[in-house]
Structures are given as structure tokens and as C-alpha cells.
Design a protein around this nucleic acid. Structure first.
Lengths: 328, 328
DNA sequence: CTGAAAGCGCTTACAG
DNA sequence: CTGAAAGCGCTTACAG
């Protein structure tokens, strides 16, 4: 069964393919009587015609696809929500969001050349040559940065800010000896290191002891061992800033295994506010991100890039907030 | 800067576009001397040429994209892992996996027509007319089913099996009065109902009291209220099968709030084995899914569909297992 | 062994 | 107001 083309619609409505194209693309600068327009639209609908995206892309050199490239680490609920919002907001502009999990050996270039997206949105920094190649191919690129510097055309989620907030909160509660519970998954290193940097900076600023840093596996035994080492020595740790809520839950379980009380003996703060955080015993204090604001910003950034806007939208401020619960 | 085309490669290597196409696509049935082949490949590499996917798709009517449509519910870690595996396994066949979050008002048809994928993989059942339209357009469709019936060309994850396993495990521990903790998120209803059906069937089979069923929000107060109602009356509930680990953690927190002991007073079993499960107090018993086996099967199913294989691969058996921990 | 030519389905400058 | 024609970049049947 052959594909339905604009020629079929043209025949059905008794006009030329040119007219079909004008009508279906809503070209209002060409004067076509409303009656003709309606006839064409009816025919298209009756036939169930949809234009070939391949032909359109070939002709115009651009598609209506926005490719969102996810990094190598596990998608947390944050990214998940972000994608939802993004999909919805860009859909209003007729843009479809396609997500690619950047795993395995295939070079990124193969993918974006295959989809010819209008824009590529990276949720982790791109390799420099990848980014250059995409721009050269006329694709709008919105990258990501993990630090607080504002790069133009870049989405920064200042990870250091998270670490700072954690320490700030712990210091307010009177803690002076803080540890950082890093994830054991290497793929998270880029994020974990930035958050740690924030923890270190804030400890310095507040005159606290430099933080101890250890990786904590997501199991009780590993966490208990780390907790034991933190409590040994002349200056036992009394508060833990964890990479995220899962690591924080592991620390909580380690404290429990060691017979320590939270928050009396050791306080714990996570990041993300996953559902399990508020259900933990004690309920976990954590840093929450304003995903909606970030998603709206990202959508606006993509749209601005597509419109060749001179002024990219302003990054949302204050996207992070501490949710104080019983673990601190 | 104009796009690099096969004509550029042809000029650079002193052959025709025909020869370039033959060489670059590895057509071994045309006799082209190795020297020429090498010259063409060198030129292509030197120039950094990659064929236009749009043109290729337009010409051949098929792309190298596999579109994976995610349903409206939150991606759990299970789906996440599944996508990883799928991406890796299909990459070996030169296929790129693109994921679409099916939210918002845009009809699915617009998307698949825009990407012209080789195959579409649905992780929840498709609407009938969507599926028909895709097949008509020559797209291979691998759908999903939530029950135990084997539909051809369909990926079944028998949700009822999960509910059965939960009850089987609880009954082995001596429980006779079981409750089902349903999620309060309506989008999960399709899954929750199937799992509940399994719980009900297994209760019947084992001659247990018909299960009480209540939705449990992911917060302590809501869970505590539900727990209270379960414990009231002449036949207090002594075991809870939860929709998933998050709901199970909520039940755990509700039991704690009500001063009940787990598992002595009430046992709890979840589904998924999220990291927080093993870190909970007490560590949560749960049903684990063999994601690897399912992903491998899915990849094989897609490939079989693309190859027009007569025999689709066999569904993996025994993909679910109970991980017994301290909550039962 | 290699190339000229047609055609996939669309859009748009141009001619009428 | 509407249509004939060119051309986006590729592949492949056909001719040499």
C-alpha cells in the first residue's frame, strides 16, 4: 500500500500540490479563498494525510524534533519530572521531545545525524567537539553546566549551591564536624564532586572543620562501617551531608546499625526529596529542587535558541530549598 | 556553510556518487576494486562526511530509529534499567533507541509520523487505532500486555503473577488475613488493578479471606489512618501486599506511627527492590523483576519483528522472585 | 567495473 | 489566484 502524498490530496480536492502545501502549512501571505482552503483541508482529513517528515526535513533542512540527551547516570525522579514538563511545554510549540539515553559505544554524532533534530538539549555537559559539530550542522545546542558560572546558551544547575545549603542548614543546628557521604557509583562523580565542593566551601566560610569524605554503598553493612570510622578519633562527626536521598538513607541505616540516634548523635541531610525520604524513620531532611521552574526555564531556553533570540531567558533563582524534617 | 554531500566525496575521490554510495554502504555484490573502495572511504573520512538521514529515509522509506513510547506513569527504576539495556542491545544492530514520554495532548500519530521509525515499542498497551495506523504505515509494532495471555507480537509482563507471588509468600509465613495497599496515583491504575487481581486470585486459591483493599498515599498520616482501619474489626489484617516498594514504605511508616511491630504484628511485602527497600527499618521484603532477561527479550522481539522472523523469541519465564528480608 | 538518470515527497521561487 | 518546475541528498535499476 503506497504512501499517501500531497499529490493524492491535490487530486482529491482538485487543486495543485502547490496549493495543498500552502493551505496545509497555513501560509496566509498567499491569497487563497477560504472555500478552496476548506476543500483542501477536508480532503486531507478524509484521506488521513500526514506529510512525510523525511521529505520535509530533506527539503527544509530542519525537523520538528528536539533531542534530549541524558547522561550516563541513572535517571532520578528529578530528571523524570523535568522531561515531563519539557515535553508538555515544547509540544505547545509543535516540537516533539525525544529522549536518548547516552549509553553504550555508539557515538553521539551518529544519533543526531540520524534524527536531524532542530535542537539538542544536553542534561550533562557535551564533549567539546560534539558540541561544535552540532552547531556546525545548524543544530541549536543547549548544554548544561554544573557550576555557578553563567555560560551563554547553557543551563546551569549549580551543584555547589546544594552542598552549601546542606552545610548551612547543619551549621544552623549547631554542628561543627561534618562529613560528606559520596555515592559509590563512579558515573555520578561529576555531580558528586561539585556538591562536595560546595560542602567544602561552606565549611571554610563558616569556619568549620574540613569535612571528612567517604563513599557509602547502598547497603547497611557498608554504611555502618563508614559511620564507625566517622565516629572514631578525637573529633567525631555529628552531621552528614549526603550526595542524595538514597545515600542519606544508607547513612541512616548505618547509624541505626551502630546504635546511634538521629539526630541527637548524628544528623543527616539528603538531596532530592524522593518519596522514601519523608517515609524514613526518622523522616529525612533534604534539599528540594524547584523542578517546575527549571523545566520552564529549559523549555524557554530551547525556544529562545530556535527563535535566534538575542536575550536568552533569565535562569531561575533560588531553585533549591531545604525541607527540614526529623533527621536534623 | 552548505551541507557535505556524497557529491563532495565523489569529487574528492574522483568517482561517481553511485560508487560512493556502493562503497559506503558496503555493497559487496558490486565488484569494486579494493583500491577504489579505500580511496572513497579515505575521502569520506577526511571530509567528515555523514549521509543525510532525511534523504536516506525519504529514499528508502525506513529509518534506523526505534521509538520507545513510555506511558503516562512515572518511570520507575525498572523502566530505566530496561531502557539502558535496550539501547545497548539494539545499538549493536545499528538501531538507535529514542524514548518518548507520552504526555500532554499531542496525538501519538504526530510523533511517529515525524520520526518515521523502523519500529515502535510500547511499554504500555497502545490504543487499537494507533496500533493499526502504525502497522499500515509499515512500522513494526511491539506492544505490551499486562496479563498472562500471550498475544503474538506483544510483550507481556504478567502483573497478576506479582500479586500471586506476594500472597504466596505471605501465606507461607502463616498469614490468613491480607490487605492490598493500592497506589493513590490514578495513572498507575492499570498496573495496580492487575496486581490486585493476582492478590485476589491467590487468596481464593489458598482459601484465605478476601483481601481488604485501600489506597495509601505516600505520607505517614494517610498510611497510619489506613493501617488503623485494617486493624479494626473482628479479623485484623496481619499482612500487607503493597503495589510497590514506595507504597510499602508508606505502610511501614504507618505501622510505626501506630506503634505496631513489623513483622510480628503486621508483615509487609513490596515490589521493585528499589535501593530504599533494603535500607528501610525493617529491611523490606519485596518482589524483584529480572530486568536483564526482560530487556534481552524485548530487544530480541524488536529485532525479530524487523527481520520478519516467523518465530518470535520465547518470553522469559520466571522473571519474578521474592527477596525475603525482615519485614515478613 | 563505473556513471547518468530517475525518483522518494515535499516546499517555494517564479511564471502566468 | 493557481500551477509547472526545480531541487533538497540519497539509492538503485539500467546502460555502457
Amino acid at each position: 500500500m503506497p504512501r499517501l502524498t500531497s499529490a493524492d490530496v491535490a487530486r482529491e480536492s482538485g487543486v495543485s500540490r502547490t496549493t495543498v502545501s500552502y493551505v496545509l502549512n497555513g501560509k496566509s501571505d498567499v491569497a487563497i479563498p477560504e472555500a478552496t482552503r476548506q476543500r483542501v483541508r477536508d480532503a486531507a482529513a478524509r484521506l488521513g494525510y500526514t506529510p512525510s517528515a523525511a521529505a520535509r526535513t530533506l527539503r527544509s533542512g530542519r525537523s520538528d524534533l528536539v533531542l534530549c540527551v541524558l547522561p550516563d547516570w541513572t535517571i532520578g525522579p528529578v530528571i523524570d519530572t523535568l522531561l515531563d514538563h519539557l515535553t508538555t511545554e515544547l509540544a505547545e510549540r509543535g516540537l516533539s521531545v525525544l529522549v536518548h539515553h547516552d549509553r553504550g559505544p555508539r557515538p553521539l554524532a551518529e544519533l543526531w545525524r540520524a534524527v536531524t533534530p532542530r535542537a539538542v538539549l544536553g542534561l550533562a555537559p557535551f564533549a567539546e567537539d560534539d558540541e561544535r559539530a552540532m552547531r556546525q550542522a545548524g543544530i541549536q545546542v543547549v548544554g548544561s553546566a554544573l557550576d555557578e558560572d553563567d555560560h551563554p546558551g547553557t543551563f546551569s544547575v549549580p551543584q555547589t549551591r546544594i552542598g552549601r545549603l546542606q552545610v548551612e542548614h547543619l551549621a544552623e543546628r549547631g554542628h561543627r564536624v561534618v562529613a560528606y557521604a559520596a555515592p559509590s557509583d563512579d558515573r555520578l562523580a561529576a555531580f558528586a564532586d561539585r556538591r562536595l565542593a560546595g560542602v567544602v566551601l561552606e565549611c571554610e566560610r563558616l569556619g568549620l572543620t574540613a569535612p571528612r569524605v567517604d563513599a557509602v554503598d547502598l547497603d547497611v553493612a557498608s554504611a555502618a562501617a563508614v559511620v564507625r570510622s566517622w565516629r572514631a578519633g578525637p573529633e567525631p562527626v555529628t552531621a552528614v551531608a549526603a550526595y542524595n536521598d538514597e545515600v542519606a538513607l544508607a547513612v541512616l541505616s548505618g547509624l541505626r546499625a551502630e546504635g546511634l540516634r538521629t539526630p541527637q548523635d548524628v544528623a543527616v541531610i539528603g538531596v532530592d526529596d524522593i518519596p522514601a525520604a519523608r517515609l524514613a524513620a526518622p523522616a529525612l531532611t533534604t534539599v528540594w529542587q524547584a523542578i517546575d521552574a527549571q523545566a520552564t526555564y529549559l523549555a524557554a531556553a530551547v525556544i529562545a535558541a530556535l527563535d535566534d533570540a538575542v536575550d536568552p531567558p533569565a535562569q531561575p533563582a533560588d531553585v533549591f530549598h531545604v525541607i527540614a524534617r526529623d533527621s536534623t
